[in-house]
Design a protein around this nucleic acid. Structure first.
Lengths: 235, 235
DNA sequence: CCCCGTCTGTGTTCTAACACACATATCGCG
DNA sequence: CGCGATATGTGTGTTAGAACACAGACGGGG
C-alpha cells in the first residue's frame, strides 16, 4: 500500500500493473482535478496526455454538425481516456467531457508511448481495455437502434453508478438528454416513470438511485453484456 | 509485384507492410473462399484464425436475445476480421457474417500473435485499423440514434460500394433490414424512394448503384466521417 | 424575502417507423 | 408451362419520440 503513494482510491487499470512497471510509471503520473462539464479533449484535437480517472467520470461524445450530440462510451476508474495515443491515430473524432467531477491521473503522451512500446503488462492491459470499450460502443449502437429511452436511461444510470462510489449523481435532465441523444422532455418522462416506481429520486440536478436491483430489472440486456465483457477482459 | 504472389487483388493492410515483414508472413497466409451468409465467427466463440478479406465483405452483427440483430461494423479488403486475437480478449460478443461472397487470406492465431508481439509495422497497422473500426462503430451508434432509415441505407450502400469492385451487390431487402436493425418493409420503402430518384435499381436480391454522387448527397454526415478517418489512419 | 435564472413537468400536434396482413412479382425447377 | 419458394410492394392502424409552447417549482444572490 504505502509503496503506491499515488493510489488511495486509484485507477483499477494502474492497480493491476506489476510492481516493477508501476514504479517505472510513477514518476510520470500526476493528479489533475476536473469539474463537471470540463472538456478533456476536443474532437480531432491533439492530445498531450492520457488520463486514468480515479474519481472522475468522463463521457465520449460525438457532436453532430447540427449541434446535437450522443454519447458513445464512458470511462471511470476502470479505464482511461486517450486511446488514440497508443492506437496510433493521435486524435479521435469525438469530444471527451467530464460527466462527474473528480480527479484523474495523467501521463504525458511520450512517456505513455515509450512504456506501451515495451510490450509488457501495460500494453496488454491497455489493449484489453480498448477491446472492452469497443464492446461498449457497439452495444450503444444496438441499444440506440432497438431500445426505449427508459431502458437506455436505466443503462446510463447503472453504468454511471458502477463508476461512482455513491448513489447520488449531479446531473440535469438536459445533460442526460445530450448524452443519450434524445430530447430533454423524453428524459423527464422516462425519469418520471422510474421515480413513480420508486427506483430513483430526482430533484433539480441531483439524482439518487434508490433501488439498484429494480433498475437492473428494467434495463435492457445491453447493460449486462457490457458489464460482463469488462469483467471478463479486465478481471 | 511478382514477389507478392498471394496478392493480385489483395488486402490493403497486408499490401502496406514492408517487404521484409510481408515475406515473413507469407508462409502463414492461405486463401479461403466464403459464400454469402456464411458465419465466420460465432458470438463469443473461439477464433482459430484472423481473416484479411481480399474480395469478400464481412459484417459484424450483434444478435439480440429476442432474435433481432444489428450491424456494428463491416470489413472488406481495407481491413481484417478477428481483432480480439491481438487485442487480447480472444473472443468478442458479436457474430461475423459474410455480406458479400468472395475470398480472404487467413492466418493462424498463434502466428498472428507472434508477429504482433514483434511490435513492427504489422502491429502499428493493426492498431490503427482497430482505431478506424472504433470510429465506424461509434458513428453507427450515432447514426442509429439520429438519422432516418433512408440515410442509413445510403450509408450502408456506400460503405459496401467502397469495399467492392462493382456497382452491383447481391443482397435481399430482408438481409439489409437485419443489418440495419430495421423492418424489411422499412427497407422496401427507403429503397423505393432511392429508386424513384434514379440513384439505385433494385431487382429481386440484386441491387445496382446507378448514381454514386446522388447517394452521397442523400447520405448523412456519418459516411464521410468514417471514410475520412479510414483514410487518415490507413493512408 | 424577493426575484430571476435554471430546472422540471405537461400539454398538443406531427411524423417516422413498427406491427400485422396480404397482394403481387419473379425465379428456378420438375 | 405451371407451381412453389422467395422477394417485393402496399395498406391500415398504432406508437415512440420529436417539435414547440408554456406553466410551475426551486434556489441562490441581492
Amino acid at each position: 500500500m504505502s509503496q503506491r503513494s499515488v493510489e488511495p482510491t486509484g485507477n483499477k487499470l494502474l492497480a493491476r500493473l506489476p510492481q516493477e512497471e508501476y514504479e517505472r510509471l510513477l514518476p510520470y503520473l500526476e493528479h489533475v482535478p476536473f469539474v463537471l462539464g470540463e472538456v478533456v479533449y476536443e474532437s480531432g484535437g491533439q492530445m498531450g496526455h492520457i488520463y486514468f480517472p480515479t474519481t472522475a467520470i468522463i463521457s465520449l461524445l460525438y457532436m453532430m454538425e447540427n449541434g446535437s450530440s450522443a454519447e458513445m462510451g464512458v470511462a471511470g476508474n476502470e479505464g482511461l481516456v486517450g486511446i488514440a495515443l497508443f492506437m496510433g491515430g493521435n486524435t479521435v473524432p469525438n469530444r471527451a467531457v467530464v460527466q462527474s467531477a473528480g480527479e484523474a491521473l495523467r501521463m504525458k503522451a511520450q512517456a505513455l508511448q515509450e512504456e506501451f512500446a515495451r510490450g509488457g503488462t501495460f500494453q496488454r492491459l491497455l489493449l484489453r481495455y480498448t477491446q472492452a470499450l469497443m464492446t461498449q460502443m457497439s452495444q450503444t449502437a444496438v441499444c440506440n437502434r432497438l431500445h426505449t429511452v427508459e431502458q437506455q436511461l436505466c443503462r446510463w444510470l447503472l453504468l454511471s453508478r458502477d463508476r461512482l462510489n455513491s448513489d447520488e449523481l449531479v446531473m440535469t435532465q438536459e445533460l442526460i438528454a445530450n448524452m443519450l441523444g434524445v430530447r430533454r422532455e423524453g428524459v423527464t418522462q422516462a425519469a418520471g416513470r422510474l421515480q413513480e416506481q420508486g427506483l430513483i429520486s430526482y430533484v433539480r440536478g441531483r439524482i439518487t438511485m434508490l433501488d439498484r436491483s429494480g433498475l437492473e430489472s428494467t434495463v435492457c440486456e445491453c447493460y449486462q453484456v457490457v458489464k460482463d465483457e469488462y469483467e471478463r477482459l479486465l478481471a
